[in-house]
Simulated scan of single mutants.
Amino acid sequence: MASMKAALVHRWDDTPVVEDVPMPTPGSGETLVRVEAALVNHLDLTVLSGAFDPDLPRPYVPGVEGSGTVVSSDTLPVGTRVLVHGAGIGIDRAGTWAQFVSVPSAAAYAVPPTLSFEIAAAFIEPTASAWTALYDVANLGADETVIVTGATGAVGRAAIAIALAAGARVIGLVRKDADRHWVTAPAEAMSEQDIARLDELAREQPGTLLVDSVGGPELATRCSWLRPGSRAVVIGYVGGVTTEWNLVDFIGRDVSLLPLNMIRRQAVIAQHFSEFVALVEQGVVPIDVRTFTLDQVGDAVQAVRAGGARARMVLRPWTKPDQS
């Protein structure tokens, strides 16, 4: 039986190890893809920790997104460049941190050659998450003031770009003064170190929509920057998975707290995929990547875990260490 290299998880929170394993055999309705680039993201880390499904059989191959070329398929021509995403890939079936992956054919999306394999593997989560948060969840309207946290991250930068393109006034929140320059003009760049400006936001409450990828204990404080009757879309939890709220204050502010669960909104990707591709092709949404070989999977995981990076971490399963 033919074999391939794959990163395997044997125990929760352990560093994945690269081993030789049998190549997948696609079943009916599946597409076999030679993986050229595989994303490493926060959802992967959640699955790696065991928090997502502690009963998931191990060893397993992580990786919820990736790109490559079709080897065999019942729907796509051999050689088609594709993004693979959704349908439980890397969650309840083998993922993309391998040289080959077999996926349900509906989870393989043809991508144009104008997108490199690295960009193709990295663009859909931030672009689709930002667009869905703004339009599908929050129903972005005219004359909005949108506050975006995590503004140096991929989702935050995408949300800023899409909101600006819609004509909204945008405020992007970064951790440090030195990071302000990453916020795309004409959005206002605001730093967590600028205490005077934060106090001003709490007094003036200019926001009509908060797009929050940080979460954590300060979420209630950030919601205080919104006008009564506004919305806050929570799309991440890099700042912590718990928060605390004074319910009297919460009810008084009348802010709608809206979660974004992209796993349950995969139909949005299928319906608007060409629009998301165009946003990247036209340079509206910026996507930066940092590449690693498959043998460097531990370094890529650690880079995502450390946080604060603008680039998306991408594995190249066929690249040797001296070629990275």
Rank of each mutant, 00 (worst) to 15 (best):
V137I: 08
P57C: 01
A106T: 14
A138S: 02
A151E: 05
T114M: 10
E125A: 11
T80Q: 08
T132D: 14
I89Q: 03
I91R: 07
D179R: 05
A161N: 06
G156W: 04
G95E: 11
F52P: 00
E144N: 03
A158R: 00
A151F: 05
L48I: 10
S116N: 01
P54E: 05
P59D: 06
T184F: 05
G153W: 00
G63D: 09
R93A: 09
V78E: 11
A178E: 14
I89D: 01
S72A: 13
D55V: 02
T46C: 07
A122E: 01
S72D: 10
L140S: 00
P113F: 04
I147H: 01
T69Q: 12
A120N: 09
G153K: 03
V64S: 12
I89E: 01
A154Y: 02
S73Y: 06
A166S: 14
W97C: 08
A108T: 10
Q99T: 13
A107M: 14
G172K: 12
L76Q: 13
A94R: 03
V64Q: 06
V71E: 15
V170I: 11
P59S: 08
G68I: 08
V148Y: 00
F123I: 13
T75R: 12
T96Q: 09
D143I: 03
W131T: 00
G66H: 13
A161P: 11
A130H: 00
T145F: 02
I91S: 11
T149V: 06
V101F: 14
S49N: 10
A133S: 00
V47M: 08
T69C: 08
V82P: 07
P112H: 03
V84M: 12
R58W: 04
A138E: 02
A128M: 10
D177W: 09
V111Q: 15
G95P: 05
V101I: 12
W131F: 05
G79A: 11
P126L: 05
A165F: 09
R180N: 11
L115A: 14
P113Q: 01
D55T: 13
V146Q: 04
S129Y: 00
G79Q: 05
T75Y: 04
P77I: 07
L164T: 06
G68H: 13
D92G: 07
E118N: 15
G156Y: 08
V174A: 11
I124T: 15
S129H: 01
G88R: 05
K176Y: 15
A187L: 01
A168N: 04
A51P: 00
L164I: 05
T132S: 03
G90N: 03
T69M: 12
G68V: 09
H85F: 10
T75N: 08
A98T: 13
L115G: 12
I162R: 14
A165S: 14
R169H: 12
S73M: 03
Y60G: 08
P62L: 04
R175V: 11
P186W: 00
V70G: 12
A158H: 06
A158V: 07
G150K: 09
G50Q: 06
I124Y: 02
G86L: 15
E188N: 00
E144C: 07
E125W: 04
T152P: 13
E125C: 12
P54T: 08
D55M: 09
V155T: 14
V174E: 03
R93V: 05
G156H: 02
R157E: 13
S67D: 11
G88H: 15
D92L: 01
V148F: 10
A94Q: 11
F117E: 15
A168M: 06
G156T: 02
